[in-house]
Design a protein around this nucleic acid. Structure first.
Lengths: 143, 143
DNA sequence: CACCCAATCTTCATCACTTGTTCGTTCGCA
DNA sequence: TGCGAACGAACAAGTGATGAAGATTGGGTG
């Protein structure tokens, strides 16, 4: 995701208006590596723009996704996660607390064609490393 | 997943009763490679046991999962998928129609520890190959 | 073979997440 | 500054999955 200023420009270019709500979402997402859910973004944004509705947050997040500024992730944690990091990378998902972390691994050796794939056209291989983060390490497993 | 007969034995061993509903679910899942959703199982089972409730199907599927007889998959297709194949394997997911296919690839080379993982303990690396199946190959993309 | 109790099934309700709709308000360019 | 298009807020719907409770049934027992 680009900087909030660049996003302002980009939104204007696409005929989208710049509202305090949008600015606030831009600001909250900038540098956020926590892979927040819509609700988490909503709570963070509410501190800057009291009274904003969850619906509006969803709208803005979907707009950002459509512009390719953020990535939409369904990692099976019960809610969709949003990732301002749109570079090629993969994710660690903690079964204990549901937290998500980026991980950079070289998958160039990963086959995406061959007998096993038949005529299926692989476009986006995705790796989800499920396990336990440090704080959930020893604990038994309810999310 | 074992054979329906073996499942009957296994359920009895666990103090679970054998009902027509359970037999029907066993039968439907046997050899099923379509990775059905709960609703798909429900529809298939309804042909054998008219009047069965969706709630009961969910219950039986969860029991099978707890016994480790089937795998529960959240592949981001909107609903949970159930897989009688519990061997180590991965999945092709079609962005077009949401269909799922098994794929056997050697992932022994896939790292699960190292600097990139820090103190995160990877237990189940999961690979989802997203792309297009044959019939959706050329078509544009609504699911 | 009928009985009985726990287990199970069905029905209804609830919950969490996400999106559709409507209407008053606001943006932003002229 | 003003106007039209776009937006935000409130409300409600919709989907997938689970919780609760009363009616029913499996299957060992007398």
């Amino acid at each position: 995701m680009r900087s909030p200023d660049a996003l302002v420009t980009r939104f204007r270019e696409h005929g989208l208006k710049i509202t305090p709500q949008r600015r606030a979402v831009f600001g909250v997402l900038e540098g956020d590596e926590s892979h927040p859910s819509a609700d988490a973004v909503f709570r963070a944004v509410s501190a800057r723009v009291p009274g904003i509705s969850l619906r509006t947050v969803y709208q803005i997040l979907n707009e950002l996704a459509e512009l390719g500024e953020i990535q939409v992730l369904d990692l099976g944690t019960g809610s969709i996660r949003f990732d301002p990091n749109v570079d090629d990378h993969h994710h660690l998902v903690c079964d204990g607390c549901g937290s998500v972390r980026d991980v950079n691994v070289d998958l160039s050796g990963l086959a995406t064609t061959g007998d096993a794939f038949g005529d299926f056209l692989v476009e986006r291989p995705q790796v989800i490393y499920r396990g336990r983060c440090r704080s959930c390490g020893a604990l038994p497993g309810a999310r």
